[in-house]
Protein backbone atom coordinates (compact mmCIF):
# COMPACT_ATOMS: atom_id res chain seq x y z
CA UNK A 1 0.00 0.00 0.00
CA UNK A 2 1.35 3.50 -0.77
CA UNK A 3 2.06 5.73 2.16
CA UNK A 4 -0.34 8.37 0.87
CA UNK A 5 -1.18 10.00 4.19
CA UNK A 6 2.34 10.96 5.14
CA UNK A 7 2.84 14.19 3.28
CA UNK A 8 -0.74 15.33 3.77
CA UNK A 9 -0.81 15.00 7.54
CA UNK A 10 2.63 16.44 8.15
CA UNK A 11 1.48 19.87 7.11
CA UNK A 12 -1.98 19.80 8.75
CA UNK A 13 -3.01 20.82 12.28
CA UNK A 14 -2.74 18.37 15.21
CA UNK A 15 -5.51 15.75 15.30
CA UNK A 16 -8.53 16.54 17.48
CA UNK A 17 -9.53 14.40 20.44
CA UNK A 18 -12.47 13.17 18.39
CA UNK A 19 -10.19 11.96 15.61
CA UNK A 20 -7.95 10.23 18.16
CA UNK A 21 -10.94 8.44 19.67
CA UNK A 22 -12.21 7.45 16.23
CA UNK A 23 -8.85 5.91 15.28
CA UNK A 24 -8.50 4.30 18.71
CA UNK A 25 -11.81 2.55 18.06
CA UNK A 26 -10.71 1.61 14.53
CA UNK A 27 -7.64 0.06 16.17
CA UNK A 28 -9.93 -1.99 18.40
CA UNK A 29 -11.84 -3.08 15.31
CA UNK A 30 -8.64 -4.13 13.52
CA UNK A 31 -8.20 -6.72 16.28
CA UNK A 32 -11.17 -8.69 14.95
CA UNK A 33 -8.99 -10.92 12.77
CA UNK A 34 -7.73 -14.46 12.30
CA UNK A 35 -4.44 -13.86 14.20
CA UNK A 36 -6.45 -12.62 17.18
CA UNK A 37 -8.66 -15.74 17.14
CA UNK A 38 -5.52 -17.90 17.07
CA UNK A 39 -3.96 -15.89 19.88
CA UNK A 40 -7.10 -16.19 22.02
CA UNK A 41 -7.09 -19.96 21.51
CA UNK A 42 -3.46 -20.20 22.55
CA UNK A 43 -4.29 -18.11 25.63
CA UNK A 44 -6.83 -20.81 26.43
CA UNK A 45 -3.91 -23.24 26.36
CA UNK A 46 -1.76 -20.91 28.45
CA UNK A 47 -4.49 -20.51 31.08
CA UNK A 48 -4.81 -24.30 31.28
CA UNK A 49 -1.06 -24.47 31.91
CA UNK A 50 -1.34 -21.84 34.67
CA UNK A 51 -4.20 -23.75 36.34
CA UNK A 52 -2.07 -26.89 36.30
CA UNK A 53 0.93 -25.04 37.73
CA UNK A 54 -1.15 -23.83 40.69
CA UNK A 55 -1.44 -20.14 39.82
CA UNK A 56 -4.59 -18.34 40.94
CA UNK A 57 -6.95 -16.63 38.53
CA UNK A 58 -5.94 -13.16 39.80
CA UNK A 59 -2.23 -13.93 39.43
CA UNK A 60 -2.70 -15.23 35.90
CA UNK A 61 -4.85 -12.28 34.78
CA UNK A 62 -2.25 -9.96 36.35
CA UNK A 63 0.52 -11.78 34.50
CA UNK A 64 -1.37 -11.39 31.23
CA UNK A 65 -1.61 -7.63 31.78
CA UNK A 66 1.96 -6.90 32.90
CA UNK A 67 3.99 -9.37 30.80
CA UNK A 68 1.67 -9.84 27.82
CA UNK A 69 4.15 -11.73 25.58
CA UNK A 70 3.08 -15.38 25.61
CA UNK A 71 6.54 -17.06 25.42
CA UNK A 72 7.70 -14.98 28.41
CA UNK A 73 4.70 -16.11 30.44
CA UNK A 74 5.15 -19.75 29.50
CA UNK A 75 8.84 -19.54 30.44
CA UNK A 76 7.96 -17.86 33.77
CA UNK A 77 5.51 -20.64 34.61
CA UNK A 78 8.13 -23.19 33.59
CA UNK A 79 10.66 -21.56 35.91
CA UNK A 80 8.18 -21.50 38.81
CA UNK A 81 7.29 -25.17 38.17
CA UNK A 82 11.00 -26.05 38.23
CA UNK A 83 11.32 -24.27 41.59
CA UNK A 84 13.76 -21.69 40.23
CA UNK A 85 14.58 -18.65 42.34
CA UNK A 86 13.67 -15.08 41.44
CA UNK A 87 16.97 -14.28 39.71
CA UNK A 88 17.02 -17.46 37.62
CA UNK A 89 13.37 -16.99 36.63
CA UNK A 90 13.96 -13.33 35.66
CA UNK A 91 17.01 -14.36 33.65
CA UNK A 92 15.13 -17.05 31.73
CA UNK A 93 12.21 -14.71 31.03
CA UNK A 94 14.56 -11.93 29.93
CA UNK A 95 16.31 -14.31 27.53
CA UNK A 96 13.05 -15.45 26.00
CA UNK A 97 12.04 -11.80 25.49
CA UNK A 98 15.15 -10.49 23.73
CA UNK A 99 13.23 -10.69 20.49
CA UNK A 100 10.85 -7.97 21.70
CA UNK A 101 13.60 -5.34 21.35
CA UNK A 102 14.17 -5.79 17.59
CA UNK A 103 10.40 -6.05 17.08
CA UNK A 104 9.92 -2.68 18.78
CA UNK A 105 12.84 -1.24 16.80
CA UNK A 106 10.99 -2.18 13.62
CA UNK A 107 7.63 -0.80 14.75
CA UNK A 108 8.70 2.54 16.28
CA UNK A 109 9.54 4.34 13.01
CA UNK A 110 6.14 3.26 11.67
CA UNK A 111 4.24 4.63 14.67
CA UNK A 112 6.18 7.84 15.20
CA UNK A 113 4.62 10.98 13.75
CA UNK A 114 6.04 14.50 13.62
CA UNK A 115 4.36 15.36 16.95
CA UNK A 116 4.73 12.04 18.77
CA UNK A 117 6.16 12.37 22.26
CA UNK A 118 8.64 9.78 23.45
CA UNK A 119 6.73 8.67 26.55
CA UNK A 120 3.79 7.69 24.33
CA UNK A 121 6.07 5.31 22.44
CA UNK A 122 7.39 3.84 25.70
CA UNK A 123 3.82 3.20 26.91
CA UNK A 124 2.74 1.73 23.56
CA UNK A 125 5.78 -0.55 23.41
CA UNK A 126 4.23 -2.58 26.24
CA UNK A 127 1.61 -3.80 23.76
CA UNK A 128 4.23 -5.31 21.47
CA UNK A 129 4.04 -9.09 21.16
CA UNK A 130 3.84 -11.25 18.05
CA UNK A 131 0.13 -10.84 17.25
CA UNK A 132 -0.32 -7.08 17.76
CA UNK A 133 2.97 -6.55 15.94
CA UNK A 134 1.78 -8.56 12.94
CA UNK A 135 -1.57 -6.74 12.88
CA UNK A 136 0.21 -3.39 13.16
CA UNK A 137 2.75 -4.00 10.39
CA UNK A 138 -0.02 -5.20 8.08
CA UNK A 139 -2.37 -2.26 8.61
CA UNK A 140 -0.46 0.73 9.98
CA UNK A 141 0.24 2.17 6.53
CA UNK A 142 -3.46 2.79 6.04
CA UNK A 143 -3.60 4.98 9.15
CA UNK A 144 -2.83 8.73 8.94
CA UNK A 145 0.61 9.25 10.48
CA UNK A 146 -0.59 11.63 13.21
CA UNK A 147 -3.14 9.08 14.40
CA UNK A 148 -1.04 5.91 14.32
CA UNK A 149 -0.28 6.02 18.05
CA UNK A 150 -4.02 6.32 18.87
CA UNK A 151 -4.75 3.48 16.48
CA UNK A 152 -2.07 1.18 17.90
CA UNK A 153 -3.26 1.98 21.44
CA UNK A 154 -6.63 0.62 20.32
CA UNK A 155 -5.07 -2.52 18.82
CA UNK A 156 -2.89 -3.25 21.85
CA UNK A 157 -5.26 -2.45 24.68
CA UNK A 158 -8.25 -4.29 23.22
CA UNK A 159 -6.12 -7.35 22.48
CA UNK A 160 -4.78 -7.46 26.06
CA UNK A 161 -8.22 -6.98 27.61
CA UNK A 162 -9.77 -9.62 25.37
CA UNK A 163 -7.17 -12.16 26.50
CA UNK A 164 -7.47 -11.19 30.18
CA UNK A 165 -11.15 -12.14 29.84
CA UNK A 166 -10.22 -15.38 28.03
CA UNK A 167 -7.85 -16.33 30.86
CA UNK A 168 -10.48 -15.61 33.54
CA UNK A 169 -13.12 -17.66 31.71
CA UNK A 170 -10.77 -20.65 31.39
CA UNK A 171 -10.12 -20.52 35.15
CA UNK A 172 -13.87 -20.62 35.79
CA UNK A 173 -14.50 -23.67 33.59
CA UNK A 174 -11.15 -25.51 33.87
CA UNK A 175 -12.29 -27.96 36.55
CA UNK A 176 -15.21 -29.12 34.44
CA UNK A 177 -13.17 -29.96 31.34
CA UNK A 178 -12.62 -33.63 30.45
CA UNK A 179 -8.88 -34.57 30.51
CA UNK A 180 -8.81 -35.23 26.78
CA UNK A 181 -9.90 -31.63 26.10
CA UNK A 182 -7.35 -30.24 28.59
CA UNK A 183 -4.61 -32.23 26.89
CA UNK A 184 -5.65 -30.81 23.52
CA UNK A 185 -5.57 -27.29 25.02
CA UNK A 186 -1.99 -27.82 26.19
CA UNK A 187 -0.97 -28.56 22.61
CA UNK A 188 -2.29 -25.18 21.40
CA UNK A 189 0.63 -23.13 22.74
CA UNK A 190 3.47 -25.13 21.15
CA UNK A 191 1.81 -25.54 17.76
CA UNK A 192 0.85 -21.86 17.65
CA UNK A 193 4.45 -20.83 18.31
CA UNK A 194 5.84 -23.46 15.98
CA UNK A 195 3.84 -22.16 13.01
CA UNK A 196 3.81 -18.42 13.74
CA UNK A 197 7.52 -18.33 14.53
CA UNK A 198 8.29 -20.07 11.27
CA UNK A 199 6.03 -17.70 9.34
CA UNK A 200 7.56 -14.60 10.93
CA UNK A 201 11.23 -15.51 10.30
CA UNK A 202 12.79 -12.80 8.13
CA UNK A 203 15.80 -14.63 6.74
CA UNK A 204 16.87 -18.21 6.15
CA UNK A 205 19.06 -17.99 9.26
CA UNK A 206 15.84 -17.66 11.31
CA UNK A 207 14.58 -21.01 10.00
CA UNK A 208 17.94 -22.64 10.69
CA UNK A 209 17.95 -21.21 14.22
CA UNK A 210 14.47 -22.60 14.72
CA UNK A 211 15.27 -26.14 13.54
CA UNK A 212 18.45 -26.21 15.66
CA UNK A 213 16.52 -24.89 18.67
CA UNK A 214 13.82 -27.55 18.28
CA UNK A 215 16.42 -30.33 18.22
CA UNK A 216 18.89 -28.97 20.78
CA UNK A 217 16.27 -27.76 23.29
CA UNK A 218 15.14 -31.21 24.52
CA UNK A 219 18.70 -32.63 24.27
CA UNK A 220 20.16 -29.82 26.38
CA UNK A 221 17.23 -30.16 28.75
CA UNK A 222 18.34 -33.71 29.50
CA UNK A 223 22.02 -32.81 29.89
CA UNK A 224 21.96 -29.36 31.53
CA UNK A 225 18.36 -28.68 32.64
CA UNK A 226 19.20 -25.44 34.47
CA UNK A 227 20.76 -23.69 31.50
CA UNK A 228 19.10 -25.52 28.61
CA UNK A 229 17.29 -22.47 27.22
CA UNK A 230 20.35 -20.21 27.40
CA UNK A 231 22.64 -22.89 25.94
CA UNK A 232 20.24 -23.66 23.09
CA UNK A 233 19.82 -19.98 22.27
CA UNK A 234 23.56 -19.35 22.18
CA UNK A 235 24.54 -22.54 20.33
CA UNK A 236 21.62 -22.78 17.89
CA UNK A 237 21.41 -19.04 17.30
CA UNK A 238 25.19 -18.72 16.99
CA UNK A 239 25.39 -21.51 14.39
CA UNK A 240 22.51 -20.04 12.40
CA UNK A 241 24.21 -16.64 12.45
CA UNK A 242 27.46 -18.26 11.34
CA UNK A 243 25.64 -19.74 8.37
CA UNK A 244 24.20 -16.32 7.62
CA UNK A 245 27.67 -14.78 7.57
CA UNK A 246 29.32 -17.59 5.60
CA UNK A 247 26.61 -17.62 2.95
CA UNK A 248 27.48 -14.00 2.24
CA UNK A 249 24.04 -12.85 3.39
CA UNK A 250 22.68 -14.55 0.30
CA UNK A 251 20.27 -16.33 2.58
CA UNK A 252 18.14 -13.22 2.99
CA UNK A 253 14.74 -13.96 1.52
Amino acid sequence: MPDVNDSASAASSPPTAQECLLWYLRGCRAVISIPAVILASSFVGFAALAVEAGFTMAQTVFMTAVIWALPAKVVLIGAVLAGNGLAAAAFAVALSSVRLAPMVVVLVPELRGPRTRNWVLYVLSHFVAVTSWVIALENVRNVPRDLRTSWYAGVGSSLIMLNMVVVAVVFMIADDLPPIISAALFMLTPIYFLTSLWASARERAGHIAMVLGLIMGPLFHLVIPDFSLLATGMAGGGLAYLHHRLSGRGGTT
Binding site: P190, A209, V211, L214, G233, G236, G237
Partner: peptide, 13 residues
Protein backbone atom coordinates in the same frame (compact mmCIF):
# COMPACT_ATOMS: atom_id res chain seq x y z
CA UNK B 1 17.00 -12.59 16.21
CA UNK B 2 18.77 -15.94 15.66
CA UNK B 3 19.53 -16.39 19.38
CA UNK B 4 15.98 -15.40 20.37
CA UNK B 5 14.45 -17.68 17.74
CA UNK B 6 16.51 -20.71 18.82
CA UNK B 7 15.58 -20.00 22.45
CA UNK B 8 11.84 -19.85 21.78
CA UNK B 9 12.16 -22.96 19.57
CA UNK B 10 13.68 -24.74 22.57
CA UNK B 11 10.68 -23.69 24.68
CA UNK B 12 8.33 -25.08 22.00
CA UNK B 13 10.17 -28.40 21.71
Amino acid sequence: RCVATALVAAVIA
